[in-house]
Computed example of a mutant assay.
Amino acid sequence: MRFSYPLNFLLLIPAAGIFYLIIILKRGKTGFPLSSIPVKPEKLNYLMFFKYLFLFLVLFLLIIGSTSPMVPISKVPIEEKGHAFVFCLDISSTMKALDFAPQDRFFKAKETIKEFIDNRKMNFYGLVIFAKYSLPIVPLTFDNNFLIQKLESIQIGDIEDGTAIGNAIINAVELLKYFKGESKNIILITDGINNDGYIDPIFAVQVAKNYGMKVYPIAIGSDSPVNFPFVDSKGLSYTKKIKISVDIALLRQIAQIGGDGKVYTATNSREFDSIFKEIEKQNPIELNIKSYITYKSIDHLFYVLSVLTFIIFLFLELFSIEVEY
């Protein structure tokens, strides 16, 4: 935590002095109870002490707030070092398959991407989605929170159905080609067959390779029949097992040309998580990156607490009047 106006802490000295003087002056003062009511100075003194203690806390919180306290929220690099990753995420309708029940493929892919980003905050990230065509949603950025927000907002159906793998890879290349860090990586997550788009996936991955990029193709989902959600004519939901084909041969070519020669297949949560851990091992985190820390002011929290504390003081004040009289 840091403070914009640390000299305001000096105001705590007179505030503490005033509190001390009030306690000294009020010591022994018990009020004027009726003759039929016994005087209990100890209880009144304790009540008086806590009452003025809360008043002091009000001043304390106001003074802390006036220093404009700030907490760190993120590190922002001032140089392009480390690793860059662009996620190419398939959002075609087949991603609704329930291989990862109760989650579907799409939900599991988004959760795994978010976990990967959380584990590697000092990297640059971008996001491309694709179905019938592809769209670059987030350009290469260090703002992880922004990318995660955009990722969470994406839904199946945002793009007309289809699978344009080549277009997605080319969009990723455009986001990565000017990056000057340690490595440029494309993580392709799909569960289908390339059947749309005007760019051949093999041509696209060759372009990526020419720019020094590595492509990690991930086939998500089982090749066996899986539960898939449907809605009948009456609007009722039901599931039915169907077989969804994925072009492993194409993904293998992509891996051999522009990747590490391996096609990654994720048929369950454990396999999906282990794939991303393997990608992490191949791209160890770069620690020596010059960066600055961004801060967020939290002075409003202290002002809100001071108001709540003052309300407690008022209740104690009313209670002390009732006891004394």
Rank of each mutant, 00 (worst) to 15 (best):
R2H: 10
P6L: 08
N8D: 09
G17I: 13
F19I: 06
L21C: 12
I24Q: 14
I24N: 10
K26Q: 12
G28R: 07
K29N: 15
G31C: 07
F32A: 14
P33E: 11
P33G: 10
L34Y: 13
L34P: 15
S36G: 11
P38A: 09
E42K: 15
K43R: 15
K43Y: 10
M48I: 10
M48Q: 14
F49Y: 11
Y52H: 15
L55I: 10
L55S: 09
L59V: 14
F60C: 08
F60Q: 04
I64A: 07
T67Q: 07
P72M: 06
I73G: 04
K75V: 06
G82D: 05
F85I: 03
L89V: 08
S92I: 00
M95K: 04
A97M: 05
F100E: 01
A101G: 07
P102L: 08
Q103M: 13
R105G: 01
F106A: 02
F106G: 00
T112F: 03
D118K: 15
D118P: 00
R120S: 04
M122Q: 15
Y125S: 01
G126P: 00
L127I: 06
F130N: 02
K132F: 09
L135N: 13
N145F: 11
K150W: 07
L151A: 03
S153T: 09
I154Y: 05
D158K: 06
D158T: 10
E160D: 11
D161Y: 02
D161L: 00
A164L: 02
A164T: 04
I169A: 02
I170Y: 09
I170R: 03
N171E: 14
V173G: 01
E174H: 12
Y178D: 13
F179C: 01
S183T: 05
N185S: 09
I187G: 02
I189H: 02
T190A: 02
G192T: 05
G192Q: 02
G192V: 03
N194E: 05
G197A: 02
Y198N: 15
I199L: 09
P201I: 05
Q206F: 00
Q206M: 09
K209M: 06
K209R: 12
I220V: 11
G221F: 00
S224P: 01
V226C: 07
F228E: 03
F230M: 03
F230P: 06
V231M: 13
S237Y: 11
Y238Q: 05
K240A: 07
I244A: 02
V246W: 01
A255V: 05
G258Y: 00
K262Y: 11
F272V: 07
S274F: 10
I279Q: 01
Q282H: 13
Q282S: 15
P284S: 11
I285N: 14
I289F: 05
I289Y: 04
I289Q: 05
Y292F: 13
Y292L: 12
K296I: 08
L301C: 08
Y303W: 10
V304R: 15
V307Q: 08
L308I: 12
T309E: 04
I311N: 06
I312F: 11
F313Y: 15
E317W: 12
L318T: 11
I321T: 13
E324Q: 15
Y325W: 13
